[in-house]
Simulated assay, not measured.
Amino acid sequence: MTRRDGEALVLMSQREAEGRARLLEFAAQLITVTLDDNGSLAERMSKAFPWMLALSPADRDTCAQNLVDAARASFSTDQPHLAIAELTSWKETATAIAAGLGRTDLEWLDGDDVVERP
């Protein structure tokens, strides 16, 4: 559609607009992380995303790299959902760990064990 001033008008859904806004917010946080030169990538990202502190040090490293990779994929393909899904997944994992989920010792059943129906 062309407006009177000759500039093209683009319409998008509310979901698309929110996805782009969230991706831009995420990009701003990543830029802040890259400008900081103190510590590893995971340490710098933990400052921008304090929920990462609930993860183990090894998981923080993995999370940091996964988030950067997902952001690069999102930016290069114009698909905001890639980065936002990765961010949401890691944040929910950290939240579950902080809530104590995953600390319970699991009792594994042998292949021969039968579990009665409740």
Rank of each mutant, 00 (worst) to 15 (best):
T2K: 12
T2R: 13
T2V: 15
D5W: 01
D5L: 06
D5V: 07
E7V: 14
A8P: 14
L9S: 07
V10D: 07
L11S: 06
L11Q: 12
M12L: 10
Q14D: 14
R15E: 15
R15M: 11
A17I: 08
A17Y: 05
A17P: 05
E18K: 13
R20K: 10
R20Y: 10
A21H: 10
R22A: 12
L24C: 05
L24F: 09
E25K: 13
F26S: 01
F26P: 01
F26A: 03
A27T: 14
A28L: 11
A28C: 01
Q29P: 02
T32Y: 11
V33S: 01
V33E: 01
V33F: 08
T34M: 13
L35S: 10
L35A: 09
D36P: 00
D37L: 12
N38T: 11
G39Y: 06
G39K: 00
G39F: 03
S40G: 04
S40A: 09
L41W: 08
A42E: 10
R44W: 08
R44T: 00
S46F: 02
A48Q: 12
F49A: 08
P50Q: 00
W51T: 00
W51K: 04
M52I: 04
L53V: 00
A54S: 15
A54R: 02
A54E: 05
S56E: 00
P57D: 07
A58H: 09
D59Y: 03
D59V: 03
D59A: 13
R60F: 01
R60Q: 15
R60G: 07
T62G: 01
C63I: 03
Q65W: 03
V68E: 07
V68L: 12
D69F: 01
D69V: 06
A70G: 00
A71R: 00
A71G: 10
R72A: 13
R72F: 09
R72C: 12
A73T: 12
A73K: 14
S74L: 00
S74A: 15
S74N: 01
F75S: 04
F75D: 01
F75P: 06
F75N: 07
T77N: 02
T77P: 05
P80Q: 02
H81L: 09
L82G: 00
L82C: 04
E86L: 07
T88L: 09
T88R: 14
E92M: 11
E92Q: 15
T95M: 09
A96W: 03
A96Q: 13
A96H: 01
I97L: 14
A99D: 11
A99Q: 14
G100L: 09
L101K: 14
G102Q: 01
G102K: 07
R103I: 06
R103V: 08
R103M: 09
T104V: 05
D105H: 10
D105V: 15
L106Y: 03
L106S: 08
E107N: 13
W108G: 06
W108A: 12
L109K: 15
L109M: 11
L109F: 12
L109W: 07
D110H: 09
G111T: 10
G111L: 12
D112L: 08
V114D: 09
V114T: 14
V114R: 14
V115M: 11
E116D: 14
E116L: 13
R117A: 14
P118Y: 06
